Simulated assay, not measured.
Amino acid sequence: MDDPDAALMQAVAAGEPAAMQMLVARKLPRLLALAVRMLGDRVEAEDVAQETFLRIWRHAGSFRGERARLDTWAHRIALNLCYDRLRRRREQPMAEPPDAIDPALRPDEALSEACSARRVERALQALAPRQREAIVLVYYQDMTNRQAAELMDVSVDALESLLSRGRRALAAILKGDDQ
């Protein structure tokens, strides 16, 4: 398996802080974006990203590059942490759902764009978790269907089914918002 991060991961496993800093600089934006899309909460997503890197640092010596690429391993850690948080949310009912905030929006962006982005974020949060995971990995993390299926531990056909159901559900949710 050809992993462009293999040498960097070996340096992290050797306990080199500079290597870990470089790893964080390379991987943080995508892992943070993944967590924000899965959780709909920037603060929680930052916690997940931080915990992901702590786990990578602690378990770098046990990483086996012949079994998976670093990106796959890091995404799996982040997704597992997201699912842990989503499970805890279900166990603790809230009086009011939190406002979904898209951290990518800046004050100078057009109001209609901001409104659309918030609608899509809310719609993503309403999807079944596995459908949301598939959509986030393929459309927001730019993974191929094969990469996303491997990460989710499903067949490509199963992933495509999740994507199809997720797109239909998103369309129905967004259409319902218009009425």
Rank of each mutant, 00 (worst) to 15 (best):
residue 171 A to P: 00
residue 61 G to N: 01
residue 91 E to T: 05
residue 141 Q to T: 03
residue 62 S to A: 15
residue 35 A to D: 06
residue 114 A to N: 02
residue 49 A to G: 11
residue 161 S to Q: 14
residue 167 R to D: 13
residue 15 G to P: 10
residue 85 R to E: 14
residue 45 A to R: 03
residue 14 A to V: 03
residue 22 M to Y: 00
residue 150 E to G: 09
residue 43 V to Y: 06
residue 160 E to T: 11
residue 86 L to E: 11
residue 177 D to A: 15
residue 132 R to N: 05
residue 84 D to S: 04
residue 100 A to I: 10
residue 65 G to N: 10
residue 130 R to T: 10
residue 118 R to I: 13
residue 138 V to K: 00
residue 127 L to V: 03
residue 170 L to P: 08
residue 38 M to H: 00
residue 179 Q to L: 14
residue 54 L to G: 12
residue 138 V to F: 03
residue 140 Y to V: 11
residue 172 A to N: 10
residue 109 E to S: 05
residue 124 L to W: 01
residue 89 R to I: 05
residue 32 L to K: 12
residue 68 A to I: 09
residue 59 H to S: 13
residue 141 Q to W: 01
residue 53 F to M: 07
residue 175 K to Q: 14
residue 38 M to T: 09
residue 162 L to E: 12
residue 33 A to R: 15
residue 142 D to V: 01
residue 26 R to A: 11
residue 118 R to T: 13
residue 37 R to V: 00
residue 171 A to M: 12
residue 19 A to L: 01
residue 127 L to N: 05
residue 78 A to L: 08
residue 142 D to M: 08
residue 121 E to D: 14
residue 4 P to E: 09
residue 43 V to I: 08
residue 132 R to D: 03
residue 56 I to Q: 00
residue 137 L to D: 04
residue 103 P to Y: 11
residue 77 I to E: 09
residue 116 S to R: 13
residue 34 L to N: 05
residue 78 A to I: 08
residue 136 V to W: 03
residue 158 A to Q: 14
residue 112 S to P: 07
residue 173 I to E: 13
residue 76 R to T: 12
residue 127 L to S: 02
residue 36 V to Q: 13
residue 155 S to F: 04
residue 53 F to K: 05
residue 64 R to N: 15
residue 34 L to F: 13
residue 2 D to N: 09
residue 176 G to A: 15
